[in-house]
Nucleic acid binder design. Structure first.
Length: 477
RNA sequence: GGGCCCGUAGCUCAGCCUGGUAGAGCGGCGGGCUUUUAACCCGUAGGUCCCGGGUUCAAAUCCCGGCGGGCCCGCCA
């Protein structure tokens, strides 16, 4: 190329009118007015207008441009910066080269939304290319992940990587994806959580670790769930779930401030039956803390501590809730909470102290062993985070694993498998530890006001479609 | 897993109820236009009506099955 292009972003942020610039980008609009042509060029998400006439490029260059440059092509441009009569910063093209050809024209005009969600998600390159608002969602996502790392590093956490392929899955209640390792001749799993490996690192003597990565859960796909999703998990020695609550609210509010410039966001919430409104959500600490049983009392008018088992079972029937692996009072109460309360928690709320039997990796509550020192953080009705004071007693952990095995035998496909290796690790001694998992995709939903997780995942899982080939989007030229 | 809705030109959609020559706008292409920016004006081309089967003299339209998508419910501690 004759000239080395500089980013359009630099040109736009500090325009030296009258100087010559060399830029490159994709042609997204051509407006022809006889012998006077305006072109919109986009480079790395930044748009600038180009201007050409036979007098700027020469008759031949002018004609060649109109004959050969199409929407979607990349061109390299050299020319003078000036303002048009309407006051728009533009580059007067003196020289240009076609540097890459688009064989399909874009399906919609730049700046417009692609309507069909199937096209948007399957051909995300088009969605992002043509719709700056969509690109913005992902800019928020990538910046937020960067700021999460900076925050964790600043708190002294080290970032680690643990296995995604695991011989025994664990750390959550979920069905796994299976895979096969030819080298070993064994069936392995994609992780449903990094939890048990991260706790091994606490056993190893690292005091503060975190990992950002994909988890895989073989479950249904809906507006809140994608089978592969991104979690940030953190573990801190000598900490408990109260410390994790402070860490969570500091993390979310700090990252929001850095990325969005504010700790207030708006999100569409169903304020009453069938009526959705944009509600302002304040992410500043401290967040509300409420015991799970109190939340049921406050938001659903139920008092789990006074209900008999028969009454709990009746409520399960009423709301058509099932407990896989057989009735368990604690799990039933959590189910009722999920069904009746979760979606009502719009402002940031820590729901704390879960029934012990629902939380097999959590340390029993220091004052009442019927409960576990666990919380879930809710924002906009979304479960954003899950955390607890980690169970570091290998004897009790082994007992919980045995109970999970029993549940699995009774048909709970999501019960934990027994992880002997993890129990053995605990037997070498693990300090008191607080652990936290934050759903990154859901955090980005909250930051961007997105009501579907697909909006914040670059390539959400979709069923195999037909090969569109020549009938695909954008007409082949 | 259950319910409802959708699939027609590159895009957005009408036509379907009540069977009879496949339409519009935008985009494309050609022409006009010297400060536009969803430019404008004139002209023009463009179809696997999602796929398969059935009914019928005749199916985009009616019926059955399938595929894909969306929303809701269940499930997701």
């Amino acid at each position: 190329m004759k000239y080395t292009p500089i980013p359009v972003k630099e040109v736009v942020s500090n325009p030296h009118v009258g100087s010559k610039v060399s830029i490159a980008g994709r042609v997204v609009a051509i407006r022809r007015h006889g012998k006077l042509v305006f072109v919109d060029l986009v480079d790395d998400g930044v748009r600038i207008q180009l201007f050409l006439t036979p007098s700027t490029t020469g008759e031949e260059g002018f004609k060649w441009f109109l004959d050969h440059v199409d929407l979607g092509d990349f061109i390299n441009v050299h020319g003078e910066l000036f303002y048009t009569k309407r006051g728009e910063l533009s580059v007067k093209i003196e020289d240009y080269q076609l540097i890459s050809k688009a064989l399909r024209s874009p399906p919609v005009k730049y700046g417009h939304r692609i309507i069909d969600p199937e096209v948007r998600y399957r051909k995300r390159h088009l969605d992002i290319m043509l719709t700056p608002k969509i690109r913005r969602i992902f800019e928020v996502r990538f910046k937020a992940i960067e700021e999460i790392r900076k925050f964790m590093w600043s708190r002294g956490f080290i970032e680690v990587e643990t296995p995604i392929l695991q011989p025994v899955y664990g750390g959550a209640a979920a069905r796994p994806f299976k895979t096969y390792v030819w080298a070993l001749g064994e069936e392995w799993y994609l992780r449903i959580s990094p939890e048990l490996y991260l706790k091994r690192l606490i056993v190893a003597g690292f005091n503060k670790v975190f990992e950002i990565g994909k988890n895989f859960r073989n479950e249904d796909i809906d507006v809140h769930h994608n089978p592969e999703f991104t979690m940030m998990e953190a573990y801190q020695a000598y900490a408990d779930y109260h410390d994790m609550m402070r860490l969570t609210e500091d993390l979310v509010s700090t990252v929001a401030q850095k990325v969005l410039g504010t700790t207030k966001v708006t999100y569409p919430v169903e304020v009453e039956e069938g009526k959705v409104e944009e509600v302002e959500i304040n992410l500043s600490p401290p967040w509300k803390r409420i015991r799970l049983v109190d939340a049921l009392r406050e938001y659903a008018g139920l008092d789990p501590e006074k209900l008999s088992d028969d009454e709990v079972k009746e409520l399960l029937r009423k709301y058509q809730l099932k407990i896989p692996g057989g009735y368990d009072r604690g799990r039933a109460i959590v189910k009722l909470f999920d069904r009746l309360v979760g979606r009502k928690l719009v402002q940031p709320t820590f729901v704390i102290d879960f029934p012990a039997s629902s939380s097999p990796l959590t340390k029993p509550h220091r004052e009442n062993p019927e409960y576990a020192e666990r919380f879930e953080a809710y924002i906009a009705g979304l479960e954003l985070a899950n955390a607890y004071t980690e169970l570091n007693d290998p004897v009790l952990q082994a007992e919980y694993f045995r109970m999970e095995e029993e549940r699995k035998k009774k048909g709970d496909v999501e019960a934990h498998p027994y992880d002997w290796d993890f129990v053995e690790a605990l037997e070498y001694g693990m300090p008191p530890t607080g652990g936290l998992g934050v759903g990154i995709d859901r955090l980005i939903m909250i930051f961007t006001g997105s009501t579907s997780i697909k909006e914040v995942i670059l390539f959400p899982m979709m069923k195999r479609g037909q090969e569109l080939g020549e009938s695909g989007q954008g007409k082949p030229r």
